[in-house]
Nucleic acid binder design. Structure first.
Length: 672
DNA sequence: GTGGATGAG
DNA sequence: CGCTCATCCAC
């Protein structure tokens, strides 16, 4: 297997690093880079973080119950622990342990069962002894808290990009805020010296030495320092590496670390959640860096530390290599670490695993071009499922469960519509499994009524229930129906003008949008990516950005509707748009006129502007969607909303028989 | 549209 | 390797 040489490196002094596999780690940064209005995946100053919550479910319960965070606490789901907080971990308690074992290790352990829907109850509650036979798990609390954290991140970093990666994780693109901070702290970076021979292409002067003491663990360049169990303090690493040259990217990482630390502190102070974070040059590395040390810390992965960090890493720890694909690669080459795989050339890999192995090839070399993108719609689908330890044996027992599933979906849908009015699921689906039989499912268009009620959804679900169990099984009970698994889902959730009308019942003529698509925005635009770009532009003071784009709002002279300090009424849709409740709560605690009050006022005004811009953008996007063709049609705009930011190679070989290459690990069960 | 598979946690 | 949830793809 020959090593395929990489294409000749563009800019950058690859001499700085001995390993040719990592040849892009110290690119030359010029004034032109400082001035580019956007910072994409290839920009040398890109800075990305992954922030994730520590033992999130347990933390949520601790906050909900208002108990001491030092109390060992676990979250129980039926017979199994699904979350263990850090105090409890000290007792050797793990996820998936049984509660009885956990209590043996720690008798004072606080055991909290997740909320459940009980039969007939309109909402999930915390019951003394929930019954697996009649109750259904609810994860709503965690979803709601997750949204709070996500919202706070966005508010605290209006010029950044925040992508919710899972219920307890978010990617944050710090590139723009970092660049803005760099320009503020080092104003000489804005323009090349007048006598610079190459103008904007002149490299930046050497960076200052910047301390990162107190900003987290600096992942050491020397891999032999990596796995030491003892804490490697930042001071220690700095001492060891004091002669390592710093780069402007390192400075950027450290600025991001400051911002990240502030945001994490704020989340902790306001919401009570502890987090950890990784800061690096792309998503995948930030995620790995975050897992370096996990509890209430953040880790900074400098480019120079990437080879040492990555090579000893078991590659199956990498996102999307944790499953079958990772196993297949491990089996094929009988190796386990990233370093082991570096000797595999691109051609070799592509021959074995298909063309899209380029993705894996690059990941192994610390390259990840995927963008941090805010998801336009929270989710594309919602699903409520229940395993039935006591199977349904009579047709008539079905609706009882259907009602419970419908209740959950109804609450979740209506909750989502609070923040995003106009959300509309295209289809309602019901899946049912009987014993060993294959899963059966039916779906139907979801008629979006003005108000979705539990009754309505239950009725709709019952129609599907009839179709499923009524068709293949003689369901009157005599044939011994045995449904062991039920799941009700809303899919194709998207945001439409129609849905908006449906909910609000307002059919007023949309006024002409005050905004038009800027001719400056290149490429195909969806309502949402246009929205994001415009917002960026209007809120950041980026050099080179057309100032005419900036849109200001004046609360007193308000063309949009009436305003109070905490909310305003939009004249277009007549909705009241409010700041999060905590603003009011906080205001009540602060003495008017105090210094704190002034700070608070500033924050409130910023937030107010944000919700205003956001709401206006919402109408803007709505109009755009309207213009491009609306509602149900799979218009190009709608299409692109639905495209996920998936890292996967997404190779669709149309082979009739065996999919080729990597694709098969994403698609089908491998054949023997 | 239906049914299956994968993956994360 | 229990349970829940989300997403994607082939047919």
């Amino acid at each position: 297997m020959n090593i395929i040489p990489r294409s000749p490196s563009k800019k950058g002094k690859l001499k700085a690093f001995s390993n040719a596999d990592y040849d892009d780690l110290n690119p030359t940064i010029t004034y032109r880079h400082m001035q580019s209005p956007t910072i994409g995946p290839k920009h040398p100053l890109r800075v990305v973080a992954l922030c994730d919550c520590n033992a999130f479910y347990a933390n949520c319960e601790q906050v909900r119950l208002g108990i001491d965070p030092e109390t060992p606490l676990v979250v129980l789901q039926w017979g199994m622990l699904i979350a263990v907080n850090y105090p409890a971990r000290k007792f050797g308690i793990f996820r998936m342990d049984k509660p009885s074992d956990a209590l043996k290790r720690c008798p004072e352990l606080m055991v909290v069962h997740v909320a459940t829907y009980a039969p007939g109850e309109p909402e999930a509650k915390y019951w003394e002894k929930p019954d697996i036979k009649t109750h259904k798990i609810s994860l709503d609390l965690y979803r709601r808290e997750s949204i709070k954290i996500h919202t706070m991140f966005k508010e605290l970093l209006p010029t950044g990009e925040v992508e919710k990666a899972s219920i307890d994780e978010a990617f944050i693109d710090f590139s723009i805020p970092v660049r803005d901070t760099l320009l503020k702290r080092y104003p000489y970076l804005a323009q090349p010296p007048v006598n610079a021979p190459n103008g904007l292409d002149t490299p930046l002067p050497p960076p200052p030495k910047v301390s990162c003491v107190g900003l987290g663990n600096l992942i050491p360049i020397d891999p032999s320092k990596l796995d030491t169990e003892k804490e490697v303090t930042t001071e220690l690493v700095e001492d060891i590496e004091k002669n390592e040259p710093m780069t402007w990217h390192d400075v950027g990482l450290i600025i991001a670390a400051e911002l990240m630390a502030d945001m994490r502190k704020e989340v902790h102070k306001t919401l009570g959640y502890l987090t950890s974070a990784g800061i690096a040059r792309n998503k995948f590395l930030s995620k790995l860096a975050a897992s370096y040390r996990k509890f209430n810390t953040q880790n900074i992965l400098r480019n120079s530390a990437i080879p040492g960090f990555l090579k000893p890493m078991p590659f199956q720890k990498i996102r999307f290599l944790g499953g079958k694909l990772g196993k297949a690669i491990a089996g094929e080459y009988d190796v386990s670490t990233v370093g082991d795989l570096l000797i595999i050339g691109l051609d070799e890999m592509q021959n074995k695993f298909g063309e899209c192995s380029i993705w894996v090839y690059e990941i192994l070399r610390g390259i990840d071009r995927s963008e941090v993108k805010e998801k336009s719609v929270i989710n594309k689908s919602m699903n409520a499922a229940k395993n039935l330890p006591k199977p349904i044996t009579k047709f008539s027992e079905g609706p009882h469960w259907l009602r419970m599933l419908a209740a959950e979906l109804t609450i979740r849908l209506n909750e989502a519509r609070e923040t995003t009015p106009g959300l509309w699921p295209r289809t309602l689906g019901l899946h049912a499994r009987q014993g060993w039989n294959p899963l059966r499912s039916k779906q139907q268009p979801f008629p979006s009524p003005r108000v979705v009620t539990v009754d309505f959804m239950t009725d709709e679900a019952t129609k599907l229930w009839k179709e499923i169990v009524g068709k293949d099984v003689l369901w009157d009970g005599k044939k011994g129906m045995k449904v062991t698994n039920l799941s009700l889902s809303l899919t194709g959730i998207s945001w439409t003008e129609e849905g908006q009308k449906g909910i609000k019942g307002f059919f007023h003529e949309p006024t002409a949008s005050r905004r038009v698509v800027s001719e400056g925005i290149a490429g195909p635009s969806t309502p949402f990516n246009v929205r994001k770009q415009k917002r960026k532009r209007s809120l950041s003071s980026t050099p080179g950005v057309n100032d005419k784009e900036i849109i200001t709002y004046n609360v007193d002279d308000d063309e949009q509707g009436t305003s109070t300090a905490y909310s305003f009424v939009c004249t277009r849709c007549r909705q009241t748009i409010s700041l999060p409740a905590r603003f009011k709560e906080q205001a009540a605690e602060i003495e008017t006129g105090s210094d704190l009050f002034l700070d608070f006022e500033e924050m409130r005004q910023n937030a107010f502007t944000n919700i205003r811009v956001e709401h206006d953008d919402y109408h803007f996007a709505q109009d755009l969607a309207h213009r491009y063709g609306t509602a149900n049609a799979a218009s190009p705009s709608k299409r692109s909303i639905a495209i996920p930011t998936s890292l996967r190679p997404a190779k669709k070989k149309k082979t009739q028989k065996e999919p080729e290459g990597i694709a098969k690990f994403f698609i089908k069960k491998t054949k023997a």
